[in-house]
Amino acid sequence: MKANWDLARYFIYLLEIIKNVSAPDIFYVEDDTDFAFLTKHAIEEVNNGLSVKIVDNGKDALDTLQQLCDNRIKPRLIMLDLNLPGMSGHDLLKKIKEMPFLKYVPVVFFTTSDNPKDIRASLEFGANAYLTKPSGYLNLVSCLHSLHDFWFTKHVNLN
């Protein structure tokens, strides 16, 4: 049964990818659907023109990223939660850094943990930033605002 479901989900994703041939600006892995929902809206509030692709577990994330690679589609920013079902954010980060096509896409951790150990490990594995999830929607919007300013506006300018 479960295998069938997985298969069904796989086709849905394939359909989505095909439908969404243009690259997502932001690829976000987050298992908290509430937070994912709020973040998606906050990003829209910051910049309505950005496209966001969200998946809620590590395995789907890997599959989707592989699809992106195969289609030579490169997101502009990857955001990862740390505590994910199935595969941790750290493991996911390692896999991403092993994909030559995605190797240079900036990866930002976005998590509840403020544990210094987690922060240090994330940076060591090659994360480009580590953000603790802010409390409340207003804070989230301002947080994403500065994230956007740094990785989309200034970065672009630099390039």
Partner: peptide
Amino acid sequence: TPLSSVKSYSEFLLAT
């Protein structure tokens, strides 16, 4: 986490 959602959704409603 859920507490944070309570707050965020409330703010979201207020903002949007």
